[in-house]
Simulated assay, not measured.
Amino acid sequence: MTHSQHTANVLQSSPSRIDADAAASIRPLECIELFAGCGSMALGLQQAGIIHQLMVDVDTYASRTLSANRTTFGKSDRLLISQADVRHIDWHAYAGVDLIAGGPPSQPFSGGGLGAGQHDRRDLWPEAIRAVSEALPRAFVFESAPGLLRPSFSQYLDDLVARLERPCGVREDVQYKVTVVPLNAADYGVAQNLRRVLIAGIRQDCGSLLEFGPNTQS
């Protein structure tokens, strides 16, 4: 059974989310975010009680927006906002961080684009994997366009999940439980039909995955 088939079965039965309750009861969880954009994911994470150490985006206007709203993202005195190319960042400096989050560019997989996938220079999923492999966070959550679930990308998704499950390759002691969750923001009270895909994982020595939150509009 391929990963794409397996995740489809998981999604039909019990989609999952990160179980961070135990850690959150001791101290606030800390996060670094790649491809932070204008901060929509960061705002949601902040509302969940997660504190950002670092937010990175290469776009000038996105970075300016983040900087202008830095007090929105929790403890601003600890937050570094960096306009940078993630390909030039050494993530070892953030080893052991609680959470890595972000939204790698979705254009290579979007139904409205060319569908070039890994052959599109904007495919930066390998950089998301590198961040996980170098920092080895307790957990990660990434989001993308639903086009990533198209049959034409099934092998890509299989390989992506496999690499996130074992980001260090030969190290048997570092493995992640990974789940793929499609969702529509409208099902959670947002006044917009916005379909996305979440890819979340937790390091196996840190906990387990629980059911993803139910549709609040049904």
Rank of each mutant, 00 (worst) to 15 (best):
I26M: 12
S40V: 11
S218M: 14
E165F: 00
T60M: 08
R195I: 01
D19C: 15
I129L: 04
S106V: 10
S14T: 10
A200W: 09
E165R: 01
C38F: 14
I199V: 13
H92T: 08
G201I: 07
V197E: 02
S63P: 13
A62C: 15
L198W: 14
A200S: 11
A48K: 12
I202C: 06
S144V: 09
E134S: 03
T7H: 11
G113V: 03
Q107F: 04
I50V: 12
R166K: 13
T216Q: 05
R17M: 14
L29V: 08
R163T: 00
G44S: 03
A162M: 12
G37N: 06
P126Q: 07
I81E: 04
D85K: 04
Q204T: 07
T72L: 14
A191M: 08
L80H: 08
D21N: 11
Q107M: 09
G117D: 01
A131T: 11
Y156A: 07
L45G: 00
D205N: 09
V170W: 14
L160C: 05
F212A: 05
W91E: 06
M1Y: 02
R171K: 11
E143C: 06
T72N: 15
R196P: 01
L183M: 15
C168L: 08
L124V: 02
Q204N: 15
K75D: 06
R70T: 10
R70M: 08
V86I: 09
G74H: 10
H3C: 12
F73S: 04
A185V: 02
G117H: 09
N215E: 02
G112I: 03
K177G: 08
R138K: 12
I199R: 06
T179L: 09
V141M: 04
C31G: 07
A131Q: 12
S76P: 00
V190H: 10
P108K: 08
Y188A: 05
P151Q: 09
R87A: 03
Y156E: 04
G37K: 07
L149T: 07
A68H: 01
L79A: 06
S40C: 13
R166N: 09
F153V: 03
R195S: 11
S16A: 11
Q53K: 14
V174P: 00
S16I: 06
P137Q: 03
L157P: 08
I50R: 09
T65P: 15
P182D: 15
G103P: 02
L149N: 01
S40Y: 13
L66K: 07
Y61K: 15
V58C: 14
H52G: 08
T7C: 06
L34T: 10
